[in-house]
Design a protein around this nucleic acid. Sequence first.
DNA 1: GACTTGATGATAACGAATATCAATATCAAA
DNA 2: TTTGATATTGATATTCGTTATCATCAAGTC
Lengths: 146, 146
Amino acid sequence: MDAKVKFNKFLINKGLRQTKQRDEIVNVFLRLERHLSTQELFDIVRKKDKDVGYATVARTLKLLAESGLCRVVDFGDGVQRFEHKYGHEHHDHLICSKCGKFVEIYSKKLEKLQEELVRKHGYTQEYHKLDIFGICPRCGKGKQVV
Amino acid sequence: MDAKVKFNKFLINKGLRQTKQRDEIVNVFLRLERHLSTQELFDIVRKKDKDVGYATVARTLKLLAESGLCRVVDFGDGVQRFEHKYGHEHHDHLICSKCGKFVEIYSKKLEKLQEELVRKHGYTQEYHKLDIFGICPRCGKGKQVV
DNA sequence: GACTTGATGATAACGAATATCAATATCAAA
DNA sequence: TTTGATATTGATATTCGTTATCATCAAGTC
């Protein structure tokens, strides 16, 4: 199912309305394949349409998360960022602590191990969040031979 | 080396001073083997001594983190919490998303796998943070048979 | 004991997320 | 199509944890 369709179904299911602003915001978000903060998305949307407020962008991102189209990522800098989720494989992040550049990482083995650990403690996993911080090749160049 | 001694060495190394307030705050923190927010630690310290301000507790926790005695944990609720690090094995967290109860988890295999992943991308790992959210046995009881 | 300079406490400033509210738009029903 | 109940909106106020400010105080050196 198309992501946009899924969102609209979500709205109807919740008794919410489809509006011009929500359409615009969701369209822009879905088109951009990257992590965005509320402010960043607001700035982009605002360039096309002066009639969209910050609050509406924030509210719509919340709805997008609720609907399963995106998820919140929090690298601990106090800013919530949102990334695509629907139609995207789960992944974790490897973040350069110097320049902030990150890559998405995934390992089936890792996931399985985590699941095992959870079961061992009697928990039922809902989701997890693995952020690895390190130095990227570019930032580490010339620093050491390892 | 005793944790307290290590902290005092850290202070001297940085050209900082040992004060009554820092002593008190560090003592209380080291005695309590649990995660604490600035506010929580402040409340506890304040009960013993009315002459310690919130700002000093916040500043001291920052120093404790810098000195390697504690680390910041952030479960994404907007509050920084601090946990012991010195003399404690590295571990990750398995958190109940219903009641907030958590257990510390550790797996050597998991750590190794992560290290491999990092190397594969040409990064040099500094640290990582794995939080798994799920339902704890108590909260999940009677809900489903799985 | 005096002096240099870091430390302190109270509180202001900050920043992001969220709440508020009057005006407006949606959409189902008439 | 018009209407009306109510969800939505934009601007902004509020909230809340963290951080900065600054006059006063105290640690540690001489």
